[in-house]
């Protein structure tokens, strides 16, 4: 294989790289569902859109190659046709946006973390070059793990153009349950592999997925924990996402100033107000700042935003 063959051949990616160029302030917009994450974009920034389209769905490899501007909903529809699903949360946004933000799906226990599902990422660098990182197979330790660094970087290190994601088989059955008298931690401990267990201070929701016989067995096991009834869906989630230890999330009884929903066994909590910010450790901040200055020396990518 020659060096020339290593560069991606997709002309759509090259057009995107040319559009982004190597100078001027730029930001990539998805559908704006998390547009203010990391701060407001600086004035005078050119807003671009990432290329769209699903390039290849490979259920036998449990992978999909998709361009960043594609809607997560469209991706999930295409995957559902072949009995697969992704780890990306579906909230009206794009694949690139979901990966740039890095938030997990509510069913993270069943679907896995977004950052573990990004096998390969092709992004346009601040210098306008297409960079390929990772590999299009499910297991790979060839070189430094740039896909991990790019996932969750809010577009501040490179403009995501295309990704290969690991997919997983769509379970044959999905059932939400709700209880008003079950202890959330005990519910979690009783279940083998729930996709999600939620707690709002008075009710516990459980999401069971898999073979019908397994879902029935897990449901049956919960009888000793509380009275669970089938539910149509999870509860409405408040707007702000907090990070707690799983123990603290499970022992939460109220959040000042509004409602909350806590994810048991995960530690994510949604509340009506933002979590108090914890200052970043100084030594860690040095690494953050060094990464930013190495990947984006002129500060042209997503100015105004900080991870």
């Amino acid at each position: 294989m020659t060096r020339a063959e290593l560069a991606p051949t997709d002309p759509v990616l090259h057009s995107f790289a040319a559009e982004l160029g190597d100078r001027g302030l730029v930001s990539i917009a998805g559908r704006g569902t998390r547009w203010s994450a990391g701060g407001e974009i600086a004035p005078g920034v050119q807003i671009l859109r990432a290329p769209t389209g699903i390039v290849e769905v490979s259920p036998a490899e449990m992978t999909v190659r998709v361009r960043a501007g594609t809607l997560v909903a469209d991706l999930n529809d295409a995957l559902a046709e072949v009995g697969q699903r992704s780890a990306l949360p579906e909230r009206g946004g794009t694949v690139g946006g979901a990966i740039a933000v890095g938030e997990d799906h509510l069913d993270v226990l069943g679907r896995g973390r977004v950052r573990d599902s990004v096998l390969q990422v092709r992004y346009v660098s601040a210098e306008g070059k297409i960079i390929s990182a990772g590999g299009a197979v499910v297991k790979n330790v060839s070189g430094f793990n740039l896909p991990k660094l790019i996932t969750g970087s809010l577009g501040t290190l490179g403009a995501i153009a295309e990704v290969v994601l690991r997919t997983n088989p769509k379970p044959s059955m999905s059932q939400w349950l709700v209880s008003c008298d079950a202890d959330p931690q005990l519910s979690f401990n009783t279940l083998y592999r729930p996709s999600c267990v939620l707690w709002d201070g008075s009710r516990t929701w459980v999401h069971l997925e898999g073979h019908a016989v397994d879902v029935a067995a897990e449901f049956d096991g919960l009888r000793h924990v509380g009275k669970f009834e089938p539910a149509d869906s999870p509860p409405e989630l408040p707007a702000h996402r907090w990070a707690l230890t799983p123990r603290d999330a499970a022992s939460m009884t109220s959040v000042e100033g509004g409602d909350f929903v806590a994810s048991i066994g995960v530690g994510t909590l949604w509340a009506d107000r933002p979590q108090a910010a914890t200052p970043i450790d100084a030594a860690l901040n040095v690494v953050h700042q060094r990464a930013k200055s190495l990947f984006d020396p002129t500060g042209r990518l997503n100015p105004g935003r900080a991870v």
Partner: peptide, 20 residues
Amino acid sequence: DVVTLGSVRGESLGLDLRGA
């Protein structure tokens, strides 16, 4: 210097230096 990469608190958002 000593740093802690990642967290046992919820999902850690931001630069995934732990993953790197």
